[in-house]
Design a protein around this nucleic acid. Structure first.
Length: 484
RNA sequence: CGCGGGGUAGAGCAGAGGUAGCUCGUCAGGCUCAUAACCUGAAGGUCGUCCGUUCGAUUCGGACCCCCGCAACCA
């Protein structure tokens, strides 16, 4: 792998970003930063954006007294700005209302239409006039639409275009069996294989009643429905002039990694590959799957009052503290829980006491004893070998997307440094050559810790690297006061 | 018998066929260079329950109990 292309889902901006979407973006950002350091900036492309069509958005816009495009202009800007405020390093922010994307989505659909994978069928179902959309059985509560309980659901039929997903079942199963890494972690691979084996049904990919959407190229009375509109963003992005100008081309496509929540896994691992195959296009490299976490033990949701705004959280905690907590609380693919209590404990303990404090111990002592540090050529070979062993282990974890295990191991290296300084007691040593040897060794260890932590803690490590270089004492992680 | 995930120290989480680990917390020492930080030691687990495979299982297989997602026209 000499290129790395990571995507987040494009978010549906009916409201501001919350902690769950931030988690996804933080992980993608961490991987992007790690691979930039490994492969070079020009070989990593990191994409995020917003999915801006559909009835729900049109309704939200109406409720806000705005036109749909005014509404999505504002919200997509809010998303882009939120990620920038959180220090996210995305290379481009894509919007599905951009004509470049719309054209690409239409072309993709047209290709499938031309080769016979799209057909017309009437769809019958219960329609809610309040939502202006059909309701599935699982959406209906007590025979009513939960959002409009006073209105009666009516049986309606509508002409739809369908995609022959069923045609690709055998092909997909074979593809999955030959590409066991296509979905990661493996438990989610197993889940996808199970779904495909159960059988794939054709899916409706257009709507007559939805006006806020991309027109179906071969029937402008219809608009393209959700996934056929949204998923192509990962590829349409390479048609944008700004993206081309930065040197990102579809050469990145075969190395694409889609980072998605388990809720939308099947669309990325089943529908999307079939859409691409139908259009004669190559598949992405991998779908990386994350679980869902609760906040203080409660499922995320507006109705639960815990849809935390990451920018609000940032007012109270450094971004690195939020990142560290979210990235290390659970492994990729697993569900977990997020709480500010844990965040504070990790920040004060792991970051402040173990890492930040070690940095200062070394800098303080080296200044006090006036010895040379940061001379990597003079590091004891045995000590260096031990540190490098940690480094190799951590890099292996990053390569395998195991951010939590990487972070845990970096913390072990930091602990190793604290033990080393305690055992050698350079503050008691009168022989300056010995002191210099110990502290110089530690300065090497710290440089490795800084580098390894940098994808996870970009702000703090940037400061730490400067502080070590200039031998300036710095409080990297000021203690969090629980009363703050 | 719809599919899948999970049940490991007070809490949050790793792990792996063969003395059960990490972070936080608790207790007792040590140190004093450092962000009242650091180091050492201790307490605390029959690794959900019951069978089976094995010389040996918490790790593999089966059954069961409990919790949680999904079940495909869900934005």
């Amino acid at each position: 792998m000499n290129k790395f292309y990571i995507t987040t889902p494009i978010f549906y901006p009916t409201s501001a970003p919350h902690i769950g979407t931030a988690y996804n973006v933080f992980v993608a950002d961490t991987l992007a930063r790690y691979f930039r350091a490994k492969l070079g900036d020009q070989n990593v492309f990191f994409l995020t954006g917003t999915d801006e069509h559909g009835t729900k958005l049109a309704k939200s816009a109406e409720a806000a007294g705005k036109t749909p495009i005014e509404f999505v202009d504002e919200l997509s800007a809010l998303y882009d700005q939120t990620w920038k405020d959180l220090g996210i390093s995305h290379d481009f922010f894509i919007r599905t209302t951009n004509p470049v994307h719309e054209k690409f989505a239409q072309d993709l659909l047209q290709k499938s239409f031309d080769n016979g994978d799209i057909y017309e069928k009437s769809y019958e179902g219960l329609y809610c006039e309040g939502c202006e959309s059909f309701k599935t059985d699982s959406e209906i509560v007590d025979g009513k639409c939960p959002d409009h309980p006073t209105k009666t659901l009516v049986q309606l039929s509508e002409k739809n275009y369908f995609f022959r997903l069923s045609k690709y079942q055998d092909w997909l199963l074979e593809y999955l069996e030959q590409n066991k890494e296509f979905v990661f972690p493996s438990k989610w691979y197993d889940y996808v294989v199970g779904l495909v084996k159960e059988g794939l049904n054709d899916v409706s990919i257009s709507r007559e009643s939805v006006k806020w959407g991309i027109p179906v190229p071969f029937d402008p009375s219809q608009t393209i429905y959700v996934w056929y509109d949204a998923l192509p963003n990962y590829l349409s992005v390479f048609n944008f002039d700004e993206v081309k100008a930065k040197g990102f081309t579809d050469e990145f496509w075969p190395e694409a990694r889609h980072f998605v929540g388990k809720d939308i896994l099947k669309f990325h691992a089943i529908l999307w590959p079939a859409m691409l195959k139908s259009a004669g296009l190559p598949l992405p490299a991998q779908v990386l799957v994350h679980g869902h976490f609760t906040v203080g033990g409660v499922k995320l949701g507006k109705s639960n009052g815990n849809a935390i705004d990451p920018l609000e959280l940032k007012k109270k905690y450094p971004v690195d503290a939020i990142r560290y907590s979210l990235l290390t609380e659970f492994q990729l693919g697993n569900d977990g829980d997020f709480s500010v209590e844990r965040l504070e404990a990790l920040y004060n303990g792991v970051l402040g006491n173990n890492y930040g404090n070690l940095l200062n111990r070394v800098i303080h002592l080296s200044n006090k004893k006036q010895v040379e540090i940061n001379n990597h050529a003079k590091v004891d070979s045995e000590f260096k070998a031990q540190v490098d062993e940690f480094r190799t282990k951590v890099e292996g974890y990053f390569d395998a997307y195991e951010i939590k295990l990487a972070a845990d191991t970096i913390n072990e290296l930091s602990t190793f440094g604290n033990k080393y300084i305690d055992e050698n007691k350079p503050w008691l040593e009168t022989d300056n050559a010995k002191v210099e040897n110990v502290l110089n060794n530690l300065s090497y260890l710290l440089s490795v810790v800084n580098t390894l932590y940098s994808p996870i803690l970009p702000e703090a490590t940037a400061k730490a690297i400067e502080a070590l270089k200039n031998r300036e004492v710095i409080i990297l992680f000021p203690k969090l006061d629980e009363n703050k």
